[in-house]
Design a protein around this nucleic acid. Sequence first.
DNA 1: CATTATTATAGCACGCGTATCAATTAAAAG
DNA 2: CTTTTAATTGATACGCGTGCTATAATAATG
Lengths: 204, 204
Amino acid sequence: MAKTAGRPPRSQSDIVEFRSKIAKHAVAIYRAEGFGAVSMRRLAKEVGCAPMTIYAHFEGKQDILRYLWADVLADMSDEIQEILKLIVAPDERLQTAAQTFVSYWIDHPDHFRLVFMSNDVTRSDVSTFVMDEETLAHFRVFSDLVQAVLQDHSNLKASTDTLISGMIGIAFCLNTIRDYPWADATMMTDRLLTSIIGPTKSIP
Amino acid sequence: MAKTAGRPPRSQSDIVEFRSKIAKHAVAIYRAEGFGAVSMRRLAKEVGCAPMTIYAHFEGKQDILRYLWADVLADMSDEIQEILKLIVAPDERLQTAAQTFVSYWIDHPDHFRLVFMSNDVTRSDVSTFVMDEETLAHFRVFSDLVQAVLQDHSNLKASTDTLISGMIGIAFCLNTIRDYPWADATMMTDRLLTSIIGPTKSIP
DNA sequence: CATTATTATAGCACGCGTATCAATTAAAAG
DNA sequence: CTTTTAATTGATACGCGTGCTATAATAATG
């Protein structure tokens, strides 16, 4: 079983290196000039390769944007963790985390758009998201927080998922449907929590 | 105060006529070939005018898509009204309407994308939606249904808005974040309703 | 008729995501 | 060295949303 002649395929490390180089520049552009500035042609110029070379390493733009999501999601997660340090009561922890989550996306509409709405219109697939382990972890936080509050663990998953999709829904609506006079986000989040942990008194 | 010379501005009826002509063709293209096929150039060809002429009558593509929303929203509303005919109990009416609403968007991902996710990426504004009276009415249905169930009307708005954004959130998440193993949509909707009308037994 | 105000058009431009394809370069084996 | 294979490049292309400009068509007034 001798090796075949000719140039060998890209080594695994080369692939990783190139991908992370692209990712690094993508994040830099996004941070400096926002979502609209991140384009394949621009990225290629920045990195110093032909636009089509990128397609040898990524499936498409969507595939690159995932690296930006990671960046944003980590930022959001940090914000939540930071606040949770100060709180011990399980129900207060859940409430605070939820409020912080919702606030984050309302305070950073560009981040929200990037993570949740950067679907490519030309593709027929609506699906935006591909969950890797790291991304999943950011959402599992809520599973843990809900678990700490719920006495009945039988429908932990349903509760958690309702909470997550509900929070995203609130952020989504306030971001995209601006004409509608939505109720206060904090109130809505509070009300949403009711379906999980029962009536609460809001945190001052 | 004599009229000035020269060709008079478009009459109001001319404007309306042209707009609805564009809208008609847009709906036709969308119905026949889906979201991706609706483009300004295509639309112009279909209607028989220069692409840029459309911009004299519409602010941009977004402005045209509103007519498609109206079409889809009416369809969804009809589906809800149809089912509600058979139900009298207020709480059951609310539950059924909510489940139908969520199901509609999950069963029609293309419609969901059109209505809720057709933002133009090049524009920096995330906002997609402009609510006209007609569109608002489709959402007010839920306000009425909630009102019929709630004894305490003091936080009717918060409850309704939480429900609406929650339902949209469920539809949104199931449509766009496909990798995540979401709980059953019916269960989540049920749980969401809990925050509004308290614990319910699900409808068989 | 001519004048004039308005709309409509064609043509070009920019940048976008993405695809194709021939030509070139790089790295290994013989 | 040459040969072989893979990676990269450049050019070109399509269609997209949208803007600009110069020109033509239109419909009223005087």
